[in-house]
Amino acid sequence: MTQLFDSYYAGRRVFVTGHTGFKGSWLTQWLLLLGAEVTGYSIGVPTQPSLYEPLGLSGQIQDVRGDVRRSQDVQTAMAKAAPEVVIHMAAQALVLPSYADPLTTFETNVMGTANVLEAARHCPSVRSVVIVTTDKCYANNEWPYGYREADALGGHDPYSASKAAAEMVVASYRSSFFDAGNASGKRTGVASVRSGNVIGGGDWAADRLVPDCIRALAEGHPIIVRNPGSVRPWQHVLEPLSGYLWLGALLARDPATYGGAWNFGPNPESAVSVEQVVSQVCQVWGGAARFETATSAQALSEAGILRLDCTKARSQLGWHPVYDMGEAVHQTVTWYRSTMEDAGRAVPLTVRNISDYVQAARAKGVSWAPMDRGGRV
């Protein structure tokens, strides 16, 4: 697996914030398989249960506990790790908690991003910085077409607004400090990445659709759905992570070409309604779709339609999605079902999911996963 992404990550030092979260755990596991030396920086394990703990990642990396809101702590940790690649994923990542605690959301997502960038610009070893935001950073006008990287930023809820503001911070730091070179005189590539609504095994966050479905199905309860008609760009968690990793490698080699904002979303047909996702999850689980529409969240503003246009990543990076919606749901629900029956399956199943995804990517000819020398996938 070390030959993926132009073999860039084998032996490289990578600093990952938010490594204990759902996406962060998948990313950390993949980086280890690629041969990277990972330092993780996180305030703690965000959920119980979690994916991070069953994977046993803390014993395989430098596991640093700290808050991205504390600038000096971030700088100290990054300087000690001396990474070549920084991937910033730490965030307050949910819409509903942003209404309950908007200040923490803005502090974490805006100032936390600024603190990571400030640490990176003072760290001479850093060659590329990938800042993870969200598809919700766009000013959503309920348009039927996918949003492109040049479209206006905005957000009605505190979470979306905080991520739009983080995008502005990234653009400012890139043009003010990184395009001209860092303290060592070497240029560092900086990019922001915007993925769709990710699904995958090991997400146990509250108020997220698939984890809510799994909990309800396992307990025999109806699934509570806030907005069944809302349309989102659903994708398996490994889809955007492949984009982040590929971009991190390319940024280090050509900051001018690959800096900027990038969408990593699914194919257009995978942008479906919440109700359709619930139905597919229940079908794979093996039960009838029973859901009730919540009433308590009706006063909270959430976009009705959201799609991403990934033409830029397709044309300039050679990146494109591997799984359709059906396969993404199958991989996800199968992971949950298997690990709930036997928690010891978490590691081998997660590693196998990554391996299966790589094989499927090679078969589809994506740029970051070339055939081996014998022409095999």
Rank of each mutant, 00 (worst) to 15 (best):
Y8I: 00
R12I: 06
V14F: 02
H19N: 08
G21H: 05
G24Q: 11
L31K: 01
V38I: 10
S42F: 01
P46E: 09
Y52V: 06
E53K: 11
G56E: 08
G59L: 03
Q60C: 05
G66P: 05
Q72K: 12
T76R: 13
A82P: 03
P83M: 03
M89A: 13
Q92V: 11
A93L: 07
L94D: 07
Y99P: 01
A100M: 04
F106C: 11
A114T: 13
P124D: 09
R127W: 05
S128T: 03
V130H: 07
D135F: 06
N141E: 15
Y147E: 08
D157L: 09
P158V: 09
P158D: 07
S160Y: 02
S162C: 02
A171F: 09
S175P: 00
S176T: 07
F178L: 07
F178C: 07
A180R: 13
A183H: 11
S184G: 14
R187V: 14
G200R: 02
G201F: 07
G202Q: 02
A216D: 08
G220D: 14
I223D: 10
S230D: 12
P233G: 03
S242W: 00
L245Y: 01
L251F: 09
A252N: 01
D254C: 14
E269H: 12
E269F: 11
V272L: 14
S273I: 11
S273K: 12
S273Y: 06
Q276G: 10
V278I: 12
V278Y: 02
C282S: 14
V284A: 00
A288V: 11
E292H: 14
A294I: 04
A297R: 10
A297K: 12
A299C: 10
A299S: 15
L300E: 10
E302T: 15
A303T: 10
G318T: 10
V322N: 02
H330M: 13
W335C: 07
Y336G: 08
V351P: 00
S355W: 09
R362Q: 15
R362V: 01
G365C: 08
D372M: 08
